[in-house]
Nucleic acid binder design. Structure first.
Lengths: 230, 230, 230, 230
DNA sequence: TATGAATGAGCGTTCATTCAT
DNA sequence: CATGAATGAACGCTCATTCAT
């Protein structure tokens, strides 16, 4: 089986190329690409409401602005690559945890909650996907993300189906998609300026300003309750 | 009962002010404001991926650019107003239909499906809310949207709670929030360039390019299945 | 003798017209005009680097924006009127003090120093005269200012000439003009952001950041030393 | 002696970079910067009442608007640079002429008169310095101008002091500052629309519409008469 | 491959002034 | 005379992308 997740790179293991050195062979190029992704990610995390500027990314990576365009066609492509990677990550963890955990719904909820904590760029980027990223990226890169997503979902669906044979493969897949949709939507609804958040709480409307992770778990539990019926 | 939704204006009933006429009294001003909202909406629907430019909105409304700033502080404010209005609309319909329909989950799904069809700006705008709109709008307008949302949810929760007394008010509210999150997320996942859509179908991954309204109904049914347990 | 300075109005004696009342007769109109001038001046003093907006002036005066244009053709006209008034004031004081004081140069210096202190709008406005005000005002209003200036200078020159008969009338006049030029120039050279001022002092260049009033006195003394020769 | 005025560039000697060519090394960059300054200056001289627009400057220089911002942070910075340069120029000439001319006051007057004729942008820009330029420029650029001014004044003061040992260094410096103030003020008082000028002459008030250069000489002579006493 | 100078489209907003009421 | 809604010109600046070197 081709591994979906070949792209995963532990940053700490990453050998870095000296700045302003020419990346000749494929390995060096990949390294440089990774380094750009790391820089972009780092800057994005500093202010997850905006994509950082190309200049900032280049500077952060110790390279020139033009160099970035040797590795990516547009700025958005960089972040779509990061997002793709993050999708890979979450799918991979879901699969792993599914197999080891007895309580499926709880496992899913816990995995998602932990993952979004450990990867605070995931949901902000996922939220921008439709609105910002895909709009400025070649279709085949969008397809790449979708394909990865599809394959991940397929694998997880199979695992699920093995444990809950009464649930069809496509029901499993749909459940996963719904889960991702729910997480994405909850995160966006939960996102707001700090002033608004405190105003909401002050006005007894904390329903709209809840702890994201709490809500996440509850929501997933609700969505996955069908499993307990099977 | 105080009606939340007094703001709803059927565009077709709207008397329009002749162009370049002065809106002196409050009624005329409201009319002009509505007309700007209509123009903005119309242009947005032509290309729901970008907010139209202020100049375009003004021209569409037969007014000068500066006039817009007599009615709105920023461009985003216009679209937040539209979105607020659309949230009012959906909440109102949910409430109405809930009371008349026997099958609650189906009613909710059908209402949402129909509403998003009739108001194709709803989900695109809702998707931009966090990322684009709220970022350039005074906090109290964000609060206004949230408050309306809260009050709508409160009313619907009460109606739900009346029919399913085993479900607590806050469980009902949370269910509604989850529903909105799910719809939002599904719409975003379902959103893609036409080329991508056909590529997905060609590659046997139509799972990721489904009919939105189908998926919506299935998703809501899944989320609301708890009701059948009560 | 026709008084040059009929325009001088002690603000405290000013009867004010109730807001939004129609000014029918000439006296009422003059009152309203004065009130607009006062409002404009008050706002300008709050931020003497920019002319306040017409809207701000109207609001401050309790009137509508359009009303201002019943009294002045352009915004700059308002400030040219204020400046004219302030020129009247300084000329009048110079004349008065000249007659009572024995030491002419010192009298002039002291008068100017005191006047600019009491009327902090004088030099800022005078500095804007060429660059901003006269550019957007009908020539005959500029002429009015010049005429007043001329007549004031003429009167003072006569007084000077009486005391120093060896100085021709036109030499006296020129001396006055040079004095005004010097004051204006010194004020502009002395004007700077606070940060720059402290940087200058820190760099041992306090020559360029002196006390304005000190410099003023020294400068005038220097310019007027010819008198002691006569 | 380190020359303060190394920046002086005779425009006619300036090698120009071909349009749309890249300025790679520092020399070319300096050339391009000079060319932008020249263009800005040229346009300003066409209408010395307003700073030309950035677009106009770019077009005049055969470059794109954005390019300007590679060389200057704001539009005002361009003109502050020109003004700094012009201050360098006048200080340099004053110093040179002082050393060669026997009659100091006359030398100063003649130098200033000639310089302002040859550099018609000098006084208009100097007049805008406080009101317009320094307001939109980083403090350290203002400081640069001040520093240059200070150093120029220091050098000239030394030269003066050598010839008139009874005048202290700081008296010399102050005399120079007063001179600059006087020139600036006279220029502003002398500045007026052509219509006003002819009206003044027609009304026998030519005192207020004199030949600037005449007045300048007379004024400086008056200010510098102290020297003859020493 | 790397650079970074050059490009130029894109846009929201302010505000003095006009003028219908 | 008073109002204030409507006007629309004016403009600096950013920044993703290109491309000559």
């Amino acid at each position: 089986m081709i591994c979906l997740f070949q792209n995963l790179q532990e940053p700490e293991r990453l050998k870095t190329l000296p700045d302003r050195t020419r990346a000749i062979d494929e390995a060096d190029k990949a390294l440089r690409r990774q380094s750009l992704l790391q820089s972009a990610l780092r800057l994005f995390l500093e202010q997850p409401t905006n994509l950082p500027s190309v200049q900032a990314i280049a500077t952060e990576a110790g390279l020139a602005k033009g160099t970035i365009y040797l590795y990516f066609d547009t700025k958005e492509e960089i972040f779509l690559a990061i997002l793709t990677h993050l999708y890979d990550g979450i799918l991979s963890e879901l699969l792993t945890n599914l197999e080891s955990e007895p309580q499926v719904a709880q496992s899913v909820a816990a995995t998602l909650s932990a993952y979004t904590r450990r990867h605070p760029a995931f949901l902000p980027l996922a939220s921008m996907n439709t609105t910002i990223l895909e709009r400025n990226v070649k279709p085949d890169l969008v397809m790449q993300l979708k394909t990865r997503l599809y394959e991940g979902i397929a694998l997880i669906s199979q695992a699920l189906n093995k444990r809950y044979p009464t649930l069809s493969l496509s029901e499993c897949a749909q459940l996963l998609i719904n889960t991702q949709a729910l997480v994405l939507g909850l995160w966006q609804m939960h996102q707001m300026p700090e002033t608004v958040r405190s105003a909401l709480i002050a006005s007894n409307m904390s329903l709209l300003a809840p702890d994201f992770h709490e809500t996440l778990k509850a929501g997933i539990t609700c969505l996955w309750q069908s499993l307990s019926n099977h």
